[in-house]
Amino acid sequence: MESNGCIKMQAGLVRWLIIPAFFLFIGCIAKSDKMATTGTVKGILVNSSGQPIADAVVMVAGGTGSFTDMAAITDENGAFYLSNITLPGSYSLQVQTGGASVQKNVQLTSSADTIRLTY
């Protein structure tokens, strides 16, 4: 009897440990799903003097996950928008202007980031 009581107590203890652990696990999965999202990040392309570069082509050359293969064109203020990229993530951006190109590595955390690239 005493042994049965001990087993019952242990089973109850295990239940109280397993149930919260299960919900904690589910919560972690849900949180990790929420953490990875796709979004658009604004960037500014300037030359070494800090002047904006217009009509340059900016694209993702490599990085986190899968990204859409559309390239952005900078406007008169040097602004561009990279769409449908996984955030947060690390990316290699390729800038092509005037027949020359350069790659820059950036670390992006959210859509609130603004990338500042100096060409």
Partner: peptide, 12 residues
């Protein structure tokens, strides 16, 4: 040569 609704430009 794509011009988005907000004026942003792209190529595809």
């Amino acid at each position: 040569k794509i011009t988005a609704a907000n004026g942003a430009r792209y190529i595809g």
